[in-house]
Design a protein around this nucleic acid. Structure first.
Length: 375
RNA sequence: GUGGUUGUAGCUCAGUUGGUUAGAGCGCCAGAUUGUGGCUCUGGAGGUCGCCGGUUCGAACCCGGUCUUCCACC
């Protein structure tokens, strides 16, 4: 169930609460990515208590290959397996089949692919990815889709979108005719495709909306197209997606992307950027973006981020974090990931506050200027 | 002391029969990174080729001296 709690007077931005069997999720929200049953380098306790994440992601592709469904079933589902009692969302694996697996064949039935771990062959279909996600037991599960690469001509984009739509229908059917494995309800989110073509995006948004599911996702964006194209597609799609349901923009993005998208009516985000780029030395702070490997931080003993309300942000210095990252120390990756996630969650928390206060637009402009500058 | 051996970028090393502006890996300095393979990619700075002299149109390369590294022998 999704409840709108405030609407911005100037824009499409809104705040809401998405209720799941594992807690309420305030929106707009950023969801940390925990591909293989872990947000890399961060304890579940810290995700909950320090970073304040109400929901994290898992990935069907990775979890299905390892540890595999027998172990996940024996464990009693992913929540129990990883000791996480808040909400979970699993991606269907559609994206990974395309980005990770070298050998793959796309057919009407589904996608055959080779495991990146041992080369073994597997088949993902709209039906079995629902079954798999039933067993994993995430509160929100995703329909199996094809993430259309960019650039792409209209004809290819239409063909790809139509395949996604056929798969969507089959996924919804399987979802409706099966029950949750672990006794609590799950939501299935359809995914809008259509590349950067307005007519296709409209058609795809109609298809997603017509399923009547509890929430809707927008995929196939931030795959190389200019940010302006992405924003335009969000506007087109959000005119059609039901306004009383949460809208999830998949794989996005930078702090600036988040605020611009919130303005256009997006409620949920996920992105590997704060964690993957964090491990590589890109640090997001309330003062701007830092490349902590730069020599200029070697003697800077100020806190990583004095404004962020998390333990690592205020406790450790930039100079220490630089030393850890330069040395390839595990703790560097941990601290960087925690800082970045704490920052992302703090950013969306502020956005919720400003929307409720009716000051979103004014705040957004100054916030973007502040947090997306390079220091 | 004698014989051999070694010396080229911060480090480890290539470098053709002597032939334009001496290269690589790592490191360093920067940049990219968007539904995660603890990735990946791009660019940059940096060398009096131990030193001195000689041969040659031309020397990292050949010759002499000298210093240096390591080894063996006395």
């Amino acid at each position: 169930m999704f409840t709108i709690t405030a609407k911005d007077k100037d824009t499409r931005a809104r705040t809401g609460t998405l209720t799941t069997a594992h807690g309420d999720i305030p929106t707009p929200i950023f969801m940390p990515v925990g591909t293989a049953g872990t947000v890399k380098g961060i304890l579940q306790r810290d995700l909950a208590d320090d970073i304040n994440a109400p929901i994290i992601l898992g990935n069907t592709y990775h979890l299905y290959l390892r540890p595999g469904m027998e172990i996940l079933k024996a464990a009693g589902g992913l929540h129990k397996f990883i000791n996480w009692d808040r909400a979970l969302l699993t991606d269907s694996g559609g994206y990974q089949v395309f980005s990770l697996s070298a050998i793959r064949k796309v057919k009407q039935e589904g996608v055959t692919f080779s495991s990146h771990i041992d080369g073994s062959k597997h088949l993902f279909t709209p039906e079995n990815t629902v079954d798999i996600q039933r067993i994993i037991g995430a509160d929100i599960i995703m329909a199996f889709d094809e993430c259309t690469p960019w650039p792409c001509d209209h004809k290819q984009a239409a063909r790809s979108m139509n395949l996604t739509h056929q798969w969507l229908e089959r996924a919804v059917t399987r979802f409706r005719e099966t029950d949750p494995v672990w006794g609590y309800p799950q939501y299935l989110f359809p995914i809008v495709q259509g590349s950067t073509f307005e007519d296709l995006r409209r058609e795809s948004a109609e298809a997603a909306a017509s399923t009547g599911m509890e929430g809707m996702a927008i995929g196939g964006l931030s795959v190389g197209e200019p940010a302006e194209d992405m924003y335009r597609m969000i506007e087109v799609v959000n005119e059609i997606l039901p306004s009383d349901k949460p809208r999830y923009l998949m794989g996005v993005g930078t702090p600036e992307n988040l605020l611009e998208s919130i303005e256009r009516g997006i409620d949920m985000f996920d992105c590997v950027m704060p964690t993957r780029n964090g491990r590589n030395g890109m640090i997001f702070t309330n003062e701007g973006i830092i490349n902590i490997r730069n020599n200029k931080w070697a003697n800077d003993f100020s806190a990583i981020d004095g404004e962020c309300p998390s333990y690592v942000s205020r406790t450790f210095s930039k100079a220490y974090l630089r030393h850890l990252i330069m040395s390839g120390e595990m703790l560097g990756a941990q601290i960087a990931s925690m800082q970045n996630l704490a920052f992302y969650l703090y950013l969306v928390a502020q956005a919720r506050e400003k929307i409720a206060e009716g000051e979103f637009l004014k705040w957004k402009t100054s916030a973007i200027k502040r947090v997306s500058g390079r220091l």
